[in-house]
């Protein structure tokens, strides 16, 4: 699972291409326009490398941190089969993190550097994981709807231009389809169950709706910057387009279960074909992504703890003849 990479809207677009070799840039753009993939050792503009590292790294961190709110419920998932399934899902998410770190390191940032930037709070990860999973129903809503959002994002990015990222995403998307079915099954079980179960899943949905609406990020300003990233197939769809796609696919499924989405304004405008909704609270989004959410501090403390307590094992296994080389693909 994953949330859309957060790009600061105030970042200056000017000078992105300053100093680039225009001949090489033209060849690079022609290759992407022909639908060819870029491989790690190919020439690429500095901005392409920078944005991809940021995006893939954030994606990797999201997988790793996302395992925490879900892992919360492994020991208390109702029944043996659900415990097994949730363990498998959480293992998948951590595996996705590994695949993505590998894709990012082909661009020249080491895994150690990425982990250091995560645990010091320098790198971001998907904002939704800064919220707590209060009940079992929260874990079910995450597995269904957050993973649904992630799939929309990942299927789009899998058609991007950077070979190693696309290959990792193809593998990830296959596994996510199990997560989505598993999450749906859990939500349906609660929604078609006893009044207590229905109440529990409705409350979880109401809690998670604002973070879900935040999931794809604020509206993109169509700037030169966004245009270049879309031309380079780094960004494959605008945040609003992905949010619309999500609403279109999942709101009817939520309503089918007789659940209420906590937004009285939410409806599809039949003329435009677009969903209308109450504008999410973007101030809250910015506050939480910058560190002041209900779980930010705990998430990072847990990560630091894992790195620190595992350090002696990693050091003991290290041999003096080991030598690092950037992987090929």
């Amino acid at each position: 699972m994953y949330g859309n990479a957060y790009i600061d809207p105030n970042e200056k677009a000017a000078g992105i291409l300053a100093g680039e070799d225009m001949q090489k840039l033209a060849e690079f753009e022609a290759r992407i326009a022909r639908g060819e993939k870029i491989e790690p050792k190919d020439w690429m503009p500095r901005e392409y490398r920078k944005q991809l590292i940021r995006m893939i790294e954030q994606h990797a961190h999201s997988e790793i941190i996302g395992a925490l709110p879900e892992g919360t419920w492994i020991t208390r998932a109702p029944g043996f089969k659900r415990k097994l399934a949730l363990m498998a899902k959480v293992q998948d998410e951590v595996g996705h993190g590994q695949l993505l770190y590998s894709a990012a390191e082909t661009l020249g940032k080491s895994r150690e550097a990425m982990i250091n930037d995560l645990i010091t709070g320098k790198s971001k990860y998907s904002n939704v994981f800064n919220y707590p999973a209060f009940t079992w129903a929260d874990a079910c809503v995450i597995a269904w709807l957050i993973d649904a959002g992630a799939i929309i994002n990942q299927v789009a990015n899998a058609k991007g231009s950077y070979g190693p990222y696309c290959r990792a995403l193809d593998r990830i998307c296959t596994e996510e389809s199990f997560h989505l079915k598993y999450g749906h099954d859990n939500v349906v079980t609660l929604a078609t169950g006893t009044p207590v179960q229905r109440k529990m899943v409705q409350e979880a949905l109401s809690r998670w709706w604002p973070p879900i609406m935040h999931f794809f990020g604020p509206s993109d300003k169509i700037s030169n910057h966004t245009e270049i990233l879309m031309r380079w197939k780094v960004k494959m769809a605008t945040n609003d387009d992905m949010r619309q796609q999500f609403l279109n696919m999942y709101v009817p499924k939520i309503w089918d279960l007789g659940l209420t989405v906590p937004d009285a304004k939410l409806s599809k405008n039949e003329e435009t074909g677009k969903w209308e909704y109450t504008e999410p609270d973007w101030d809250e989004f910015k506050r939480v992504i910058n560190g002041d959410g209900p779980c930010n501090a705990e998430r990072l403390a847990v990560r630091r703890n894992a790195e620190e307590r595992g350090r002696w094992v990693r050091e003991a296994l290290n041999t003096s003849e080991s030598k690092y080389m950037v992987p090929f693909a």
Binding site: S110, E112, N116, E298, V302, R304, R311, E315, N318, Y324
Partner: peptide, 28 residues
């Protein structure tokens, strides 16, 4: 924590650590 495993691990919230050194994550 809401997560009993996290509570049991007795983690300080303010637990700054040394950054990971080169080769901490081994070769590939």
């Amino acid at each position: 924590s809401l997560d009993p495993r996290v509570t049991r691990a007795e983690i300080e919230l303010d637990n700054a650590i040394e950054p990971l050194k080169e080769m901490d994550q081994w070769e590939t």
